[in-house]
């Protein structure tokens, strides 16, 4: 005879608890935490290079970089003289809160003003996993085509900030910016959109100021 037990918890309850503990830790430390999500090649690492190059003059910044294999992305950031730690997921298509917890212990960043978590390049799976971040950022590059937010609506609905990247390519690609922004707003009326180019610096100041404002707000 079998026995049935009603459970009624979230499948990702363990991740939710780990993320809540991280969030508390980040509040105590006064660290702003941003979770960056996009498809592969949208420019997460390049955007982070340009972002931390600006912010690291005045702030202690650390980076966790998730990839299935290789240390290449963390090495790119370390070349700028900034602390970066590579999380190798060994095949998993997303980061989870326990990986972030473990990586922070090993990375030994010390006190940070801002922590950027570059998720594994994927628009679907990372959406489900809370990492204790203050907010999610979704990147959409001009070279990806302008119908992506319809194919992957969940991340556009949940990310507080959408960055349209590679704006320097606007003159040479077919991409209806106004329509895309209108549709992102339809998916997420409260979200913010920035047009940026890490190469030319377009929009980078506004994006960085946005981060600085939220850090100040977090520290009250």
């Amino acid at each position: 005879m079998s026995q049935a037990v009603d459970v009624r918890t979230q499948v990702l309850e363990a991740n939710r608890r780990a993320a809540a503990a991280l969030r508390e830790q980040f509040v105590r430390a006064g660290t702003l935490v941003v979770n960056l999500i996009s498809s592969p090649g949208a420019g997460k690492t390049t955007l982070l290079e340009a972002t931390v190059a600006r912010l690291s003059r005045n702030f202690q910044v650390g980076l966790l970089v998730g990839d299935i294999a290789t240390e290449r992305d963390a090495e790119r950031i370390r070349r700028l003289g900034l602390p970066a730690y590579q999380i190798l997921t060994g095949g998993a298509c997303h980061l989870d809160a326990r990986q972030v917890e473990g990586a922070l212990e090993k990375a030994g960043f010390g006190a940070l003003d801002m922590l950027f978590i570059e998720n594994v390049g994927n628009l679907i799976c990372p959406t489900n996993y809370d990492l204790g971040e203050d907010f999610k950022v979704v990147l959409l590059s001009l070279t990806e085509g302008d119908d992506k937010r319809f194919k992957y609506p969940a991340i556009f609905a949940r990310a507080q900030v959408a960055l349209i990247t590679k704006m320097d390519l606007a003159p040479v690609v077919q991409f209806d910016l106004a329509a895309v922004e209108q549709q992102i707003r339809t998916l997420n009326p409260a979200g913010e959109i920035f047009r940026v180019s890490a190469r030319t610096g377009e929009g980078m100041e506004a994006w960085c100021q946005r981060l600085v404002r939220q850090l100040a707000a977090k520290r009250g």
Binding site: M1, S2, Q3, A4, V5, D6, V7, R8, T9, Q10, V11, L12, E13, N128
Partner: peptide
Amino acid sequence: LDLLQVEFEPDGGGHEP
């Protein structure tokens, strides 16, 4: 995305569930 119910055969069976 919820875990609703878990059904199992208890160890050392023979007794009523």
